[in-house]
Design a protein around this nucleic acid. Structure first.
Length: 420
RNA sequence: GUGAGCGUAGCUCAAUUGGUGGAGCACUGGGUUGUGGUCCCAGCGGUUGGGGGUUCGAGUCCCCUCGCUCACCCCA
């Protein structure tokens, strides 16, 4: 086998693709209930979009981007995440005008150069949602509740929702001083990775899975205990709304997110069905990002992104559904044209129809019909063509009925409907 | 980027201490007239991921390389 899908990419083949389509269609239907509209942004952007948006110091921009120069000398990047492009489009097209909140969602591939792993690919797919223009905790809660409702509609098994607040300019600087000081006391006990985190982004020490670090992490001050009055109140109200709406969650003081732009509310939904990459969905509030990306005034915003590969992994198995309703078989070459005519008629009557095109024996065609899982077969031979009456066979029980050419579609529908 | 495990037919897996690479499933044809699934018979199918080395002889041992998987890391 010579040609293969590139490392970290994969093909989604027919049995599985049904699940993907379901995730997407349920998302569209659910998000619409919250007044969300779809936005489609380009797969690649000027690299500055991510340098300014994701953050020049972030791991993603530093080492994970598919970044290239095109033939015209432009510095471009395959999008590693969805939020910066949406913010760019929000500003470029002045989507805020005339609106209180602007609610957008996106679906599509993202690209990060990482070592592939269970639930982690170099081309992966996200569904994300963003609400711009309000800092009302009701909007935070609404976005979170929408995500949970969506996963519930998909039947995702026991998702766990974690919530925290990472503060903002009012309380973050003073907290960071305390955190850095506390980390410095235990620096020798920290892993090499965490020492680096301590230098670059001290908050992310909380993310370490290293057992050695855990002991230190236990002793570090948490930001939730150092929130300003306003930010504490904001978090409490988010939680209160969620409780009102029956959403179960856990307050996780050590939850921090990898992206630097989060302010105040952060959240994550995990599934035990996943393994090490257990985050199905993550997000939070990112007040300040709009201005950082060039907005004349800031628009507060909150949103999330979810990993489709991971959601599909966490969904329960389903029985495959037939992809066609009817399979047309022809006895011999003399009735081939009649078979094609019947197929054309059925399709234009809304019956999903296919056939075996190799001119094989009747037995072989029936085998193909059986394999196709088509619930019905129309059998066409010289007798049928002469009389204009065709035989419909129901595969589940072998029952056969005769049908005139003009009532074929209807009779097939009747047979399908009467099937348990 | 770091570490570990694994690469044999389309799929799941066998192959004594190095000694002629097999099975099940799938696929194709047949089991007498124009009918699938179960059953029976037959058939197709592999440079054992690739390259080099050791050996009379390598799927098996050694080295390199590519890929897959899992974890670290990163994060959806």
């Amino acid at each position: 086998m010579n040609l293969r899908a590139a490392r970290g990419t994969r093909d989604v083949l027919p049995p599985e693709v049904d699940r993907w389509q379901r995730v997407e269609s349920v998302a569209r239907r659910t998000f619409a209930l919250y007044g969300m509209q779809e936005i489609r942004t380009p797969i690649f952007e000027d690299s500055k979009v991510f340098e300014k948006g994701t953050g020049e110091q972030s791991e993603i921009v530093q080492k994970e981007m598919y970044r290239f120069t095109d033939l015209g000398g432009h510095d471009l990047t395959l999008r590693p995440e969805g939020t910066p492009p949406v913010v760019r489009a929000y500003l470029e097209h002045r989507l805020a005008e005339g609106k209180d909140v602007t609610k957008l969602y996106y679906i599509g591939p993202m690209f990060r150069y990482e070592r592939p792993q269970k639930g982690r690919y170099r081309q992966f797919h996200q569904i994300g949602a963003e609400a711009f223009g309000s800092e009302d905790p009701a909007v935070d809660a609404e976005v979170i509740e929408m995500a949970m409702y969506w996963l519930q509609e998909l039947g995702v098994e026991s998702p766990t929702l974690y919530i925290n607040s990472v503060g903002d300019k009012d309380d973050r600087p003073s907290y960071m001083e305390k955190l850095v000081a506390a980390q410095r006391e235990h620096l020798a006990e920290l892993s090499e990775d965490s020492k680096k985190r301590h230098e670059i982004n001290p908050l992310r020490v909380f993310d370490s899975k290293n057992p050695r670090d855990q002991a230190v992490i236990e002793k570090l001050p948490t930001i939730i205990d150092h929130l300003s009055g306003g930010n504490r109140d904001h978090l409490d109200r988010v939680c209160a709304y969620l409780s009102d709406w029956g959403v179960e969650f856990q307050l996780e003081p050590r939850l921090v997110r990898g992206l630097d732009y989060y302010r105040r509310t952060v959240f994550e939904i995990t599934s035990s069905a996943l393994g090490a990459q257990d985050a199905l969905l993550g997000g939070g509030r990112y007040d300040g990002l709009v201005q950082q990306m060039g907005g004349k005034v800031d628009a507060p915003a909150v949103g999330f992104a979810s990993g489709l590969e991971r959601i599909v992994l966490a969904m329960p198995d389903e029985l495959p559904v037939p992809s066609v309703d009817c399979f047309v078989v022809t006895i011999d070459e003399s009735v081939r044209a009649a078979g094609l005519d019947v197929m054309w008629r059925l399709r234009h009557s809304g019956i999903r129809t296919t056939a075996d095109y190799q001119g094989r024996s009747l037995k072989a065609q029936m085998r193909a019909a059986n394999r196709s899982t088509a619930p019905t077969v129309v059998i066409i031979g010289p007798d049928e063509v002469a009389s204009g009456t065709f035989t419909i066979k129901r595969m589940s029980d072998g029952q056969q009925v005769s049908s005139e050419i003009d009532s074929l579609a209807e009779d097939i529908r009747t047979l399908l409907a009467s099937e348990g």
